[in-house]
C-alpha cells in the first residue's frame, strides 16, 4: 500500500518535471529541427531569438507592458490592501470577493468583455489597452500578497513610533513600510510575471500591432514547432526561477508571504 502510493507520487513528480527538462535541452539543440536528445549543442536558437526583430521586439514590448503593470497594480493595490485589512466596515467580505474576482472569473469571459470595451473605443492593438487589461489580473495578486504581509504586522510598533513624536508619514516610511517591504516586492514580482505571461486577453486585444512575447509564441506554435520557441520558453522559465528564488529568500527573511493560487 505504502509502496504503491509512493510509486504513484514519484511517477507524478517526474511527469510534472518532465516538460522543463525537455524544453531546456531542445533550446540548445544544434539540429535544424526538433530532435531529442539533441545530437549536438549550439546557441543557434538563442542567436535567432535575439537577432530576429520579431522576437526581440515582442520581448521588449512585453517587458515594457509588464513594468507598467507592476507600477500601476502596486499603486492601486497597496493602498487598497491597507483599507481591506485595517478598516472595519459593512460589506467587507463582498468587497474582498470583488477584488479577487478578476482571477476567479474564467479568463475567456474577462477577455471578451474587455475586448468588447476596447473594440468599441477603437483601442484594440494599443499597448495601453494591454497594460490596463493585464493590471486587472495583477491587482488581485497584489492585494492578496500585501494584505497577508499587513496582517502579520504588529500595529503597536506604529503607536510606539507616534508616541515618540513621529508623524503619520514618518511612521509609515520608517516603521510600517520597511516591515511589509518583502510583501510589496513579492507582489511586484508576481504582477510582472502575470503580465509577462498573459496570453488569453492579449490574444483578443493585441491586434496586429501590439504583439507581446506570449502572442508571438502562440502564433509560432500554431504554424510550426520551431525550436526558437524553446529558446524563448527557456528564457521565460529562467525569469520564473528568478522570481521563485527571490520570493523564497524574502519568505525566509520575513515570513508572512502568501502566494495566490490562480
Amino acid at each position: 500500500m505504502r509502496a504503491v502510493l509512493a510509486g504513484i507520487a514519484v511517477v507524478t513528480l517526474l511527469f510534472l518535471a518532465l516538460p522543463v527538462f525537455v524544453v531546456l535541452p531542445l533550446s540548445f539543440s544544434a539540429s535544424p529541427y526538433l530532435e531529442f536528445p539533441p545530437a549536438g549543442l549550439s546557441l543557434q536558437w538563442y542567436a535567432r531569438y535575439f537577432e530576429s526583430p520579431k522576437w526581440s521586439g515582442a520581448t521588449l514590448l512585453s517587458v515594457e507592458i509588464a513594468l507598467g503593470v507592476t507600477a500601476l497594480s502596486l499603486l492601486l493595490g497597496v493602498p487598497a490592501a491597507f483599507s481591506l485589512v485595517r478598516a472595519e466596515f459593512r460589506g467587507k467580505g463582498l468587497l474582498l470577493a470583488l477584488f479577487m474576482s478578476p482571477i476567479i472569473v474564467p479568463y475567456i469571459v474577462t477577455a471578451i468583455a474587455v475586448y468588447f470595451l476596447f473594440a468599441r473605443l477603437g483601442f484594440v492593438g494599443s499597448p495601453l489597452a494591454l497594460l490596463l487589461a493585464h493590471t486587472l489580473l495583477a491587482l488581485p495578486k497584489v492585494v492578496v500578497i500585501v494584505a497577508a504581509a499587513l496582517k502579520g504586522f504588529d500595529r503597536t510598533l506604529e503607536r510606539a513610533s507616534m508616541s515618540l513624536g513621529a508623524g503619520r508619514l514618518t511612521t509609515f516610511y520608517r516603521v510600517t513600510y520597511p516591515s511589509i517591504r518583502p510583501g510589496v516586492i513579492t507582489a511586484g514580482l508576481f504582477a510582472f510575471l502575470t503580465s509577462f505571461d498573459e496570453l488569453i486577453i492579449t490574444m483578443f486585444i493585441s491586434g496586429a500591432t501590439a504583439v507581446t512575447l506570449p502572442k508571438r509564441m502562440w502564433d509560432a506554435v500554431r504554424l510550426e514547432i520551431d525550436p526558437t520557441i524553446a529558446a524563448a520558453s527557456s528564457l521565460i522559465i529562467a525569469i520564473a526561477v528568478f522570481i521563485l528564488t527571490a520570493t523564497e529568500l524574502l519568505r525566509q527573511r520575513a515570513g508572512r508571504i502568501r502566494i495566490p493560487m490562480a
Binding site: L18, V20, V23, D197, L199, M217, V221, I225, S233, I236
Partner: peptide, 8 residues
C-alpha cells in the same frame, strides 16, 4: 505559463 507547458 500554460503556453510553454503546452508547447513542451
Amino acid at each position: 505559463s500554460i503556453l510553454i507547458r503546452t508547447y513542451a
